[in-house]
């Protein structure tokens, strides 16, 4: 098949969009036009203007400032989730795929069972057990996403296990750990990278969903999902509240998904 420019364009577009969102998130941690929690009785439901770019909410808080903080929270949670899920998932997938045998069988059965719980459901149960809050959301989602990474990595390691380069490395006396880390792992980036990006995407989606349900981030932290559920009550009086918040969530997901899909398509060619 002819190599098309589409994947590269998708990756670039997605990177640009994600970069803007990351910049917004970074900005939100150091500076916002207004304090995200400052209330103002005189400015309830002010429509978008040069003073308040996204308008204000039911307490007169500046929505743009809150969205910037919310994007920061979401980034933090999504990155933490990917880190936990990927590190443990890669570890489990690598060991099971490389060694095979009964430990592989046993762990994969466990994996099958875990994938039977939809990940947001799994995360909700973890939250029910651990309690609310930013770090518990990271832990819950991270653990919930382990099986998906483990599966991808295991397939790759099992495929590479019998390849000549791995055999020759073994003949040269390389230890199992070295073979896994230095020889096979770099060869799996083609598969791993899109999986990581798509995992980030799913984490954003899951976090927003959980916060929307009120089972996620706790009060002092601002969350886009929770803002969305709040805005639902004022849809007719302040449509900008729901639209601006939702649009930012969509852009966040769109950026990551473009990069992920682009990477996947590039691998397919």
């Amino acid at each position: 098949m002819l190599k098309s420019k589409r994947p590269r364009r998708m990756i670039r577009g997605g990177m640009a969009l994600s970069g803007c969102m990351a910049a917004l998130a970074l900005l939100g941690t150091v500076w916002t036009p207004y304090s995200p929690t400052a209330m103002s009785g005189a400015e309830k439901f002010a429509p978008p203007s040069w003073v308040h770019w996204f308008g204000t909410d039911q307490f007169g808080r500046d929505i743009f400032s809150r969205v910037a903080c919310g994007v920061g929270t979401t980034f933090f949670i999504a990155l933490g989730t990917v880190l936990i899920g990927a590190v443990l998932g890669i570890l489990i997938g690598a060991v099971t795929g490389y060694f095979g045998g009964w430990i592989d069988e046993a762990l994969m059965r466990l994996n099958d069972a875990l994938t039977a719980f939809p990940s947001i459901l799994l995360a909700l149960v973890f939250i029910a057990l651990l309690g609310f809050g930013k770090y518990n959301v990271i832990l819950a989602l991270g653990v919930a996403f382990i099986p998906s990474y483990a599966r991808v990595v295991r397939t790759e390691f099992a495929r590479h296990r019998e390849m000549t380069y791995v055999r020759s490395a073994r003949l040269m006396g390389a230890s199992h750990g070295r073979i896994m880390l230095r020889h096979i792992l770099p060869n799996t980036t083609q598969v791993l990278l899109p999986a990581l990006v798509i995992g980030f995407n799913n984490a954003v989606l899951a976090e927003a969903g959980m916060s929307y349900l009120g089972i996620g981030v706790k009060a002092p932290d601002v969350s886009l999902g929770y803002m969305l559920s709040e805005s639902q009550g004022y849809m007719m009086t302040a449509p900008w509240y729901v639209l601006c918040t939702g649009a930012v969530i969509v852009l966040l997901i769109l950026g990551a998904s473009l990069v992920g899909e682009g990477l996947q398509e590039r691998r397919g060619q």
């Binding site: 989606l205 927003a208 969903g209 929307y212 969305l228 805005s231 639902q232 849809m235 729901v242 939702g246 969530i249 969509v250 997901i253 769109l254 998904s257 473009l258 899909e261």
Partner: peptide
Amino acid sequence: NQIIMAVPPFFTGIL
């Protein structure tokens, strides 16, 4: 397709 995939169902629902 890309855009539809990026809109989370709960936001579609709210809209």
